[in-house]
Design a protein around this nucleic acid. Structure first.
Lengths: 213, 213
DNA sequence: TCCTTCATGTAACCGGTTACATGATTGT
DNA sequence: ACAATCATGTAACCGGTTACATGAAGGA
């Protein structure tokens, strides 16, 4: 559903063709939402069918310029103001982290260190972006959303960098099992099997200390 | 592709049926990855066809217990150790934030305040979980992944809470436009249209100061 | 006996990706 | 003339969701 609103949101600013919108997606929403070409054209048609947008002019090469209709504007506002996002948790990176116990300590640490680097790079890129941006003096409502989203990105990447460095320390630090043996145990390897309450992030339960025994 | 590895990861610990895996998904991976019932059974078949897992025993009601094969174990390790996640940025919450300029200041602030609350609740829930968990004394490789993932969750929610509170201040704070008028301008409303480099998070470019003029 | 839990499966649908296809217009 | 860009579209496929369907086993 979100693509629908992303397109409406961009059209709320000014009329545009599918082609324009694709460019604007890459330019402004790249860290927030993406869409493929075929998807955009399809959704635009669907949006037009439902009366949320309409063709306001036709140009050179079959170009169709769309604009948000009053109905669309109302629907968009409603979504921005009142729709709670049903967040489905899907983080492939974290899934890998979850099974990091399958690797030897040094392998796991290397992986996390790489993640720290990556986050640092992403953070740096956002800092550059921020400096290149220069939004007036922050006194108006314009660009509010962009500024807030950018700040979110900055904080997220900073958090990831810190976390990954901490995780490296966790992985290399606490002595135990000094051999670099290939661990073969995912997080819940010793779970006892008796009924447990919800335990996201790990089924860690009272356990024997040495599961290899 | 990730579901494949999520299932293999769980099976790396111990053999299980589709039914078992569904329960374990809810119990341990709930904040990291989710899967529906039909999806799990389908993927298990596919996984078995490709030789990554195999049926090791059959139980009472057509129950089939699967175990990871050596081939599957190798594939899983390879994924955990070396596969870089091509992160596709899709954050519906941030998309709403991006278009927050469509709302009046007080509406936007309320939305952000709600988000702060939500993050605080999620954080609190993770703290409770962490305290209920008690993973030995952190000296072994077991549960490493679970501990790291949990810490990530804690830091993420804390970050979101701080950010949302900061965002509320940004929204209500800087005076200007003291009337609660309904803004109608998404982030890039005054973009001048000349070619710009990539500007994710906003097309904010050199602009006239009062776009309403 | 009857309810619950265990256990697996199918089918329709939806959002998204990749690849392919087509052709008009503009600038050099 | 030619290449680049503008501009839209279709079709096959994949991962995921929802809903429906079936039935065996175990416990009260």
């Amino acid at each position: 559903m979100s693509l629908r609103y992303a397109l409406m949101g961009l059209l709320a600013d000014r009329p545009a063709s599918g082609y324009d919108l694709l460019k604007r997606f890459g330019r402004s929403l790249d860290n927030v939402w993406t869409a493929s070409q075929s998807q955009v054209y399809g959704e635009l048609r669907h949006l037009a069918d439902s009366g949320a947008i309409e063709v306001v002019s036709e140009g050179p090469r079959g170009r169709k310029e769309y604009a948000l209709t009053p109905r669309g504007q109302a629907e968009l506002r409603e979504w921005v103001a009142h729709t709670e996002g049903g967040h489905s948790p899907r983080n492939a990176m974290l899934l890998q982290v979850f099974f990091l116990g399958l690797l030897a300590r040094d392998e796991a640490a290397e992986r996390l260190a790489r993640k720290a680097e990556e986050a640092a790079e992403q953070h740096a890129a956002l800092v550059v972006l921020q400096e290149s941006l220069d939004w007036g003096d922050g006194e108006n409502l314009i660009d509010l959303g962009g500024r807030l989203a950018l700040e979110y990105g900055l904080r997220l990447r900073a958090m990831e960098k810190d976390w990954a460095r901490w995780a490296v320390a966790q992985t290399t630090g606490p002595a135990g099992r000094a051999d670099g043996s290939r661990g073969a145990c995912p997080p819940d390897s010793t779970a006892t099997g008796f009924p447990t309450p919800e335990r996201p992030f790990g089924e860690g339960t009272p356990r024997t200390r040495d599961p290899f025994g």
